[in-house]
Structures are given as C-alpha cells and as structure tokens.
Computed example of a mutant assay.
Amino acid sequence: MLPTRVMEELDFRSSGYIATQIDKHSNSPININFPTRNDTNIADPIVMAKLYAIMEAVADRVEMHKNIGEQRNNWNSLLLTTVNAITLAAATMAATAMMLIMNKIQPSQLAEEQRNAARLFKQLHGQIQTTIKIGTPTMAEVTEFMDKVLALDKAYPLPLLGAMLEKFPSTVEPAVWWPQQPKRQGKVLDGRINRNGWNGKLEEEMREIVGVLKRKDKADYLRLGEKALKINKVLAISGPLLTGLAAVGSVFVGSPSHGSWATVLGCVAGALASVVNTFEHGGQVGMVFEMYRSNAGFFSLMEESIESNLKERDFERRDNGELFEMKVALQLGRSLSQLKDLTDASSINGEATEEFASKLF
C-alpha cells in the first residue's frame, strides 16, 4: 500500500485535473463552480436549490442582455448607414418613415440600457455567489434576491414593443433598478453589539454626504440629462421634417416653373437632414441621455441606502458602521480621510461645499 501522504497528494491532483477539464469545456461566461464549504452549518436544501435556480436565471439574463445589447447596437449602425444612404440618394418618403421609426426607438439608448442591465445582473450574480459561500442562506435572502431580479427586469425590459422605456419623457427622473429597501436584519461583526460601529459623528458625516449627493452630484446629472433630452427632441423632429422637405423638392425637380428652387430645396434639405440624423444617432445622443439618467440613479441608490440605515433606530439592524463607511468611500472613489474632508468642508461656517461627492464620474 502507498503511504497516506502520497495517496492524499494523488487525490488532490486528480480533483484539480477534473476541475480543470470541467472549466475547459464550460461555455458559460460566468464560473458557477464553487469551492466546497468547510463550515459545519448545513443549509436547507430547498433554500439552496432556490438560490441556485435564481442564480441560473440571473446568469441567463446576463447573456440575454449582452446579446440583445450587441444586436441593438448593430441596429444603430445599420439603420444610420441605411437612412443616410437613402436621404442622400433620393430623400424619399421611405427614408422619412425609417427616420421616424429610428427616432422613436432610439437604438443607441436601447444599447446603453442593455449594457447597464448586463453589468447590474453580473453584480447581482456575484452577490448571490458570495451569500452562498460565506454563510447559511435564509428564505429572507431568497426573497430579497428574487425582488432584485424582478426590479431589474422592470427597469431594463427585454421586449422592444409594448414594454420599451419612454424615450422622450416629460420630466427626467433617475433610473431605478432596485426594490424597496427591506427591513434590516442586523449583521453585527465580531460580536460587537453596543452601537454596531456607529456614533454621532459618523451619522452626521453620512447626513452631510447625502446632502452633497442631492445638491451637487444627482442634481448635476439630472440637469445634464434634461439638456440631452431637449437636444434629442429637437433633432428627432428636425430630421424627419428636413427629409420631408427634401422629398417635396425632389418631386418638382425637372419642372419648368419650379425646377431651380426644387433642386436647391432638395439638395439643401437632404444634406441638412443627413447632418441632423448623423449628429443624433452617430453622436448617440440617446445613449448620453440614458447614461446621465443612470448616473443619477446610482446616486439615488446611495442616498436611499444611507437614509435607510440612519432611519433604523435599532443599531444592531443597521449595516456595521465601519464597513458601511468604507463602502460609501469606495463607491465615491475616495479614501476614508478624503470622505471626512468632504463632510468637514460641507459644514464649515454653515455654507454648502462646491465640491462634488463622487470622484469617479
């Protein structure tokens, strides 16, 4: 018989080889192989099965949004080329109709929506993986993840017809892709009960950050979003109108009484329509609007998360204060000292700071 140490080494190499072969033949964009848990806690099989089912659905949605996003981005390039070719060639009513459809669905904005959705679903997939690896999942967490999946489905719908987001809303609102904040269940770290890492200074710091986010970051992106929306509306109306004028001019080309002005009208209007259409869709104004809306949504989520913790009077039900402060700093692209400098500056002499909270975007 072989020595015990040799047998263990052979078993280890064999298991590593099998795992390598599985990875080589896997077509999934996300690695769903998990290391064996060494803890002695045994999770409920039904809960685990449900979590795995949700995780598989999330992985499938990542792939769906990624593929559809690429497809719709291709639509943008294809439609833009087609519309310009038709406009410059004849400026016919067919080009006008295609331009109206393109302006209605805003392919560049659709592509940006799918890119955001794929990123957020990947993030959610990672959260589920972490929950499975480091703890014993509960039914409350299953419900929470289900709500997050459905909220993302609602915020970024896959169907084009019937469920498409409004491309020209009357007012600009931040994107919302998260469910209502659930009641907190108190994740106390290292047995520290007391105030769970919170103190009066930290609470005041978080309130100052919320104020800066509302006053500067979110307000600025909503303002930029309104400008992008107005520009997009003007371009969406001007393009078909100019194309229609070019089509009318082309009808009278060759007429003895209207030949000269008809030619000028057709050429000028057709050229302007091509410029307008290229600026709108080639410049991806719809995508820019969606980006601003999404950024405003990111800051809204931060505000809601901070306020949710501050409103909870039971400190044990809050997120751990030290960990939460670090997460906020990372989300804003700041160090802990820079975060404190921001809140200190915002409260000097009672005057609002002109500095933005986020250093990332």
Rank of each mutant, 00 (worst) to 15 (best):
residue 200 G to R: 08
residue 61 R to V: 03
residue 85 A to Q: 02
residue 241 L to D: 04
residue 95 A to L: 04
residue 227 K to F: 00
residue 182 P to N: 06
residue 317 R to H: 14
residue 225 G to H: 10
residue 115 R to C: 01
residue 339 L to T: 12
residue 139 M to I: 15
residue 17 Y to F: 11
residue 15 S to M: 08
residue 49 A to R: 14
residue 156 Y to W: 11
residue 96 T to R: 13
residue 299 F to T: 03
residue 291 M to V: 00
residue 65 H to C: 09
residue 295 N to W: 08
residue 197 G to K: 14
residue 31 N to F: 01
residue 300 S to T: 06
residue 66 K to N: 05
residue 182 P to H: 04
residue 224 L to M: 14
residue 126 G to T: 06
residue 112 E to T: 05
residue 310 L to C: 02
residue 337 S to F: 01
residue 94 A to T: 14
residue 38 N to H: 05
residue 338 Q to Y: 01
residue 185 Q to N: 13
residue 337 S to E: 14
residue 76 N to M: 15
residue 44 D to C: 04
residue 2 L to F: 01
residue 48 M to T: 14
residue 43 A to T: 15
residue 84 N to P: 01
residue 224 L to I: 09
residue 233 K to I: 06
residue 56 E to P: 00
residue 261 W to A: 09
residue 219 A to E: 07
residue 357 A to Y: 02
residue 221 Y to Q: 10
residue 74 N to L: 11
residue 247 A to Y: 02
residue 52 Y to D: 09
residue 163 A to S: 10
residue 135 G to A: 15
residue 264 V to K: 13
residue 4 T to M: 09
residue 93 M to Y: 05
residue 4 T to W: 01
residue 9 E to N: 04
residue 293 R to H: 07
residue 167 K to E: 07
residue 355 E to V: 01
residue 8 E to W: 03
residue 323 L to K: 15
residue 156 Y to C: 07
residue 44 D to T: 03
residue 173 E to S: 07
residue 109 Q to F: 00
residue 143 T to C: 05
residue 355 E to I: 10
residue 96 T to N: 12
residue 19 A to H: 11
residue 121 F to C: 09
residue 58 V to Q: 07
residue 127 Q to C: 02
residue 342 L to V: 05
residue 337 S to M: 04
residue 191 G to V: 12
residue 254 G to E: 01
residue 28 S to W: 01
residue 58 V to L: 10
residue 258 H to D: 00
residue 163 A to Y: 05
residue 152 L to M: 14
residue 231 I to M: 03
residue 130 T to C: 00
residue 81 T to W: 10
residue 41 N to M: 01
residue 282 G to M: 10
residue 90 A to Q: 12
residue 326 M to G: 03
residue 231 I to A: 07
residue 335 S to L: 13
residue 186 G to H: 04
residue 212 V to T: 07
residue 73 N to D: 14
residue 49 A to V: 03
residue 351 E to Q: 11
residue 218 K to H: 07
residue 73 N to M: 12
residue 276 V to D: 06
residue 283 G to N: 09
residue 118 A to Q: 11
residue 150 L to H: 10
residue 53 A to C: 07
residue 103 N to M: 02
residue 287 M to Q: 11
residue 161 L to A: 05
residue 211 G to E: 10
